[in-house]
Amino acid sequence: MVELQGLHGQVVDRIGEALADDERRAGRVLRLEDVQARYGVSRTVAREAVRVLESKRVVHSRPRVGITVRPLPEWNLYDPQVIRWRLATSQRREQLRELAELRAAVEPSAAALAARRGDPALRETLLAHARAMSGAGRDGDMKGFIAADAAFHRTLLAASANTMFAQLADVTEELLVARGELSLMPERVEEAAVLRHVEAARAVAAGDAAGAAQCLRVILDHSRGEVERLLDGGAGDDGRSGSCAFGP
């Protein structure tokens, strides 16, 4: 059974990436026979792969029509696997832009809410993750830094006490992990990036809603700029101050 899940999972990824890379395929019929032939799998594996795609709203089945590819806006675009597909294709820059805009709309508000009404234990955990980022940075441990960064933002969203914000943590984590996998991180951890997170955690712990929101705006602004520079072949750090107090 594990073997079957692994095989149909590979087929799902290959189909998903292909569909994400070509929006012109929307409306086309996806036949099980074609999936079997193209990927060299059994009908059982092809059917299971299509079921997964249907659960993500990538395709839908209709009587006497068959399995039809949905337009991209109808997909479950918050699904981490769908995000990975888009990041693996020519849609990468567009997906990164949309994720950055989503985070900019949500995380400053989450930080303000965390400062106003967050759980004291979560506030301490937030500061611990910021310190873990600092330690990983000093050690040159980029993988550890990304893990601590993802944990920081997951905790921040949870500390907002808004369960809908909290469910966006998987989206944020997918972006941060993908940055490492796609070589969209600087070669070394910038001390300024760590400082911003520490200041954000301290603002939340102090109940400073405006300061916490400002810190997140600066963090996300620098992050987006860094990704854009790296996509264009430049360096990650723009040389600007790391402190939240100076603004973006």
Rank of each mutant, 00 (worst) to 15 (best):
V2A: 14
L4C: 07
L7A: 13
H8F: 15
G9S: 13
D13R: 14
R14I: 03
E17H: 01
L19M: 04
L19E: 00
A20P: 03
A20K: 00
D22R: 12
R24V: 08
R24C: 02
R25A: 15
R25T: 13
G27V: 10
R28F: 12
L30T: 10
R31A: 15
Q36I: 10
V41Y: 04
S42Y: 08
R43E: 15
R43N: 09
T44G: 12
R47Y: 14
A49F: 11
A49L: 14
A49E: 07
V50A: 15
V52K: 10
E54L: 07
E54S: 14
S55M: 03
R57P: 02
V58S: 09
V59M: 09
G66Q: 06
P71A: 07
L72K: 10
P73H: 01
N76V: 09
N76L: 14
P80M: 02
P80H: 00
P80K: 06
Q81M: 08
V82M: 03
I83G: 09
I83V: 14
R84I: 02
R86C: 11
L87I: 05
L87T: 10
T89N: 11
T89I: 07
T89K: 11
S90Y: 06
Q91K: 13
L102H: 07
L102C: 06
R103I: 03
R103L: 14
A104E: 14
E107S: 06
S109Q: 14
S109L: 15
A110I: 06
A112N: 02
A115P: 11
R116T: 07
R116F: 05
D119E: 11
T125Q: 12
L127I: 00
H129L: 00
A132K: 09
M133T: 01
S134Q: 12
A136Y: 06
R138W: 08
R138M: 12
D139M: 10
D139G: 08
D141Q: 05
M142S: 07
M142C: 05
G144L: 03
H153C: 03
A158D: 08
S160H: 05
M164G: 03
F165R: 01
Q167I: 07
T172S: 14
T172Y: 10
E174K: 10
A178E: 04
G180W: 07
E181W: 10
S183H: 13
L184I: 04
M185T: 12
P186H: 09
R188F: 08
V189S: 06
A193S: 15
L195G: 01
H197V: 01
V198D: 07
E199G: 12
E199Y: 11
E199Q: 15
A201V: 08
A205F: 03
G207L: 11
G211F: 07
G211C: 08
Q214R: 15
L216G: 02
V218H: 12
L220R: 00
H222K: 14
S223P: 00
E226N: 00
E226C: 11
R229E: 02
D232G: 14
D237W: 10
D237S: 11
D238W: 02
F246R: 08
